[in-house]
């Protein structure tokens, strides 16, 4: 069975609860946590997918019940402990007992407008040409264990069609281990009826962006 963050297709959940307003944050601490995420200096090893993986490793109980930005707090706390930047006790008290990490000074308010306009490009040159072309029939593989991947459980071992070739993008499974390698990325179209037993006869489609290593002929 897939892990808790892998939500797609889970059954037994109730109606979507709409927001009462369109305010970006609903408490000061949410805004502060989001701002910390934007402004703080991280360790060199903290890749985007390592961040995601650390969130995915939060216990199912906390994942389902702790508020969203509170989980972000727990991600940063866990990454700091892992890197030896703080102990759990220091984080609980909000007071350091060790020297500061040897890193450059943090981002200043004056740096923020330029940082907010930076759009990261996740493409890299790849060693090999794409193995698939638009219209090709493919079948996804099965992955298990607790390693980070962006192949959702509901799309494992399913037939699909290559809808688009997106170039070579950084592979999340590797990036979560601190390795930046690129591989062809495709948007794969799945028929609803191929994913869900109750969807026979439905013409709706689900599009999932998948790396070449998740695909077979």
């Amino acid at each position: 069975m897939s892990r808790i963050h892998d939500m797609g297709g889970r059954t037994g959940l109730g109606a979507v609860v709409m927001d009462a307003d369109e305010a970006p944050f609903h408490a000061d601490w949410e805004a502060r946590m989001w701002g910390i995420n934007e402004a703080m200096t991280g360790a060199p090893g903290w890749t985007l997918d390592w961040w995601r993986h650390v969130r995915e490793l939060i216990s199912a109980e906390d994942y389902l019940t702790r508020p969203y930005f509170d989980q972000w707090m727990q991600v940063y706390a866990a990454m700091m402990v892992d890197d030896g930047w703080a102990s759990v006790a220091e984080i609980a008290r909000g007071k350091a007992e060790r020297g500061a990490p040897d890193v450059p000074p943090p981002q200043r308010a004056a740096d923020v407008p330029a940082a907010a306009r930076f759009a990261k490009d996740f493409r890299l040159p790849a060693d090999t040409a794409p193995a698939f072309a638009i219209g090709d029939k493919v079948r996804t593989i099965r992955l298990g264990g607790i390693a980070h991947t962006r192949l959702p459980g509901y799309a494992m071992e399913k037939p699909g069609i290559v809808h688009a070739c997106r170039g070579a993008h950084i592979v999340p499974d590797e990036n979560a281990l601190g390795r930046e390698v690129a591989e062809p990325l495709y948007t794969i179209a799945f028929q609803a009826a191929d994913l869900w037993p109750e969807a026979a006869g439905r013409r709706d489609r689900i599009f999932v962006d998948l790396w070449e290593r998740y695909l077979e002929r």
Binding site: T41, A100, P105
Partner: peptide, 10 residues
């Protein structure tokens, strides 16, 4: 305290 974030940037 550890110089990892500037509150004004937040």
């Amino acid at each position: 305290e550890q110089g990892l974030v500037d509150p004004a940037a937040i």
